[in-house]
Simulated scan of single mutants.
Amino acid sequence: MANTTSIIWPLEPHTEIKHIILRRYLNSWLPIISRYHGKIVYIDGFAGPGEYSFGQDGSPIIAIKAVLDHKFKLGAKIRMLFIEKEEDRCKFLKEKINKIQPPSNLDIEIVCEEFRNIIDSILKTVEENKKNLAPSFVFIDPFGFSGIPLGLIKRIMQNPSCEVLINFMYGDINRFLDLDDNEVHLTETFGTDEWKNAPKNDPNKRLEFLHDLYKKQLKSFSGANITFVNSFMMKNKSNQTSYFLFFGTNKIEGLEKMKEAMWRTDKSGNFEFSDATYRPFQGVLFEDKPRYSELKIIILEKFKGKTISSKKLGDFVVTETSFLRSHYKIPILRKMEKESPSQIQVSNRKRKGTYPDDSIIKFL
């Protein structure tokens, strides 16, 4: 982790990749959500100064440019709220954004305050008036693990068409897990004290336990009650896990677009990145390809001897595996159909070798 006591600091590779995922998702999210809603909101809860040591854009500028540079005209009224508690960074960000000429449909506000205080105030107003938040994307990217209680995330996600992208600071959590002073913060973050059961002597099992516990709490009814949750691991230059990006949405379309953004970043489908192996100027002889044989096994284990529509099969692939909707038709179904004897029977379609949503697949 870079020294973050100054106003600006160097951009690390894993942060650059995080921003690439963010920008790719916003490029998809903005036109989709603005097509159906007259007002949308983007919130960056830990905005920072908006710039790194060598002039690279920070997350607020990346989000603004996603609107300014979008190839489609975005008809919705877009409100961007940037929250930064450090006054010097907040001032730096204000000065930087004041140089930008936003279009008439883009409203930008910068607040020097704690994320949880501002969001709690917004949600209280909404809840007291018995209304809902406008469709919102909330980027929660703290330096530590305190100040992002699970209960607050649940309140955000109770509003229709809201989504969260959370930086779960595993490295800090793991380092300070056994300090008594952190007990309240950790229980607040996880929404339970089950974190106390994390294995102590096996680092890999500990990582798996804490990752899975947080994911479970994001999804469970007693936790944040989010329908779909996906994660992406970020490792530092020592190849140790720094954090996980957790994305949460209640819409399959959102999950699908975020997985596409993550797949473009890690074409192996492992959903991870390491500073230790990052070689931006080194060519790749053999690019990673999806492990189609693994997906075929998953599909057959679930559907062998059963019948399902192509649309529902695609939904299964998106929601229950690490793969994309584009991975199952040509690479798997077409090959299975060409086998002798054929491994599938397909009905309700016009042309062989195609698998439209309403076609019916029977796995033999």
Rank of each mutant, 00 (worst) to 15 (best):
residue 131 K to V: 03
residue 16 E to W: 07
residue 168 F to L: 07
residue 270 N to S: 01
residue 129 N to G: 00
residue 247 F to H: 13
residue 6 S to I: 00
residue 130 K to F: 14
residue 117 N to G: 03
residue 238 S to P: 01
residue 271 F to A: 07
residue 169 M to E: 00
residue 50 G to C: 08
residue 309 S to R: 14
residue 34 S to I: 06
residue 318 V to A: 02
residue 162 C to D: 05
residue 108 I to P: 00
residue 203 P to F: 14
residue 111 V to S: 05
residue 257 K to L: 14
residue 95 E to P: 04
residue 74 L to F: 11
residue 111 V to M: 08
residue 360 I to W: 11
residue 265 T to I: 14
residue 87 E to D: 15
residue 319 T to I: 09
residue 246 F to T: 09
residue 235 K to M: 08
residue 352 K to C: 02
residue 121 S to C: 03
residue 124 K to P: 00
residue 97 I to R: 07
residue 133 L to F: 02
residue 358 D to F: 03
residue 119 I to C: 12
residue 190 F to V: 07
residue 10 P to Q: 10
residue 223 G to T: 01
residue 181 D to E: 06
residue 190 F to R: 08
residue 276 A to I: 01
residue 247 F to E: 09
residue 182 N to F: 07
residue 237 K to A: 12
residue 7 I to P: 01
residue 110 I to Y: 03
residue 104 S to F: 10
residue 290 P to L: 07
residue 76 A to L: 03
residue 29 W to E: 04
residue 117 N to S: 07
residue 158 Q to A: 11
residue 31 P to H: 08
residue 35 R to M: 06
residue 342 S to R: 10
residue 25 Y to M: 02
residue 99 K to H: 05
residue 58 G to M: 15
residue 340 S to R: 10
residue 132 N to Y: 15
residue 288 D to F: 01
residue 220 S to L: 02
residue 269 G to D: 04
residue 204 N to M: 12
residue 107 D to C: 09
residue 350 K to E: 07
residue 304 K to Y: 04
residue 81 L to S: 04
residue 173 I to Q: 09
residue 219 K to D: 01
residue 161 S to Q: 06
residue 67 V to M: 08
residue 72 F to G: 00
residue 151 G to T: 04
residue 269 G to F: 02
residue 177 L to I: 05
residue 359 S to H: 13
residue 1 M to Y: 05
residue 262 M to W: 02
residue 342 S to M: 15
residue 137 F to Y: 05
residue 338 K to N: 14
residue 230 N to G: 06
residue 354 T to L: 12
residue 266 D to L: 08
residue 98 N to R: 06
residue 282 Q to A: 15
residue 341 P to I: 10
residue 311 K to R: 15
residue 356 P to C: 04
residue 21 I to M: 11
residue 130 K to I: 05
residue 245 L to E: 11
residue 37 H to W: 14
residue 279 R to A: 08
residue 111 V to R: 15
residue 92 F to A: 13
residue 276 A to F: 12
residue 105 N to E: 05
residue 198 A to K: 11
residue 143 F to P: 00
residue 148 I to R: 00
residue 299 I to T: 06
residue 171 G to Y: 03
residue 197 N to A: 08
residue 129 N to Y: 10
residue 108 I to G: 00
residue 202 D to K: 08
residue 95 E to K: 14
residue 30 L to I: 07
residue 230 N to K: 10
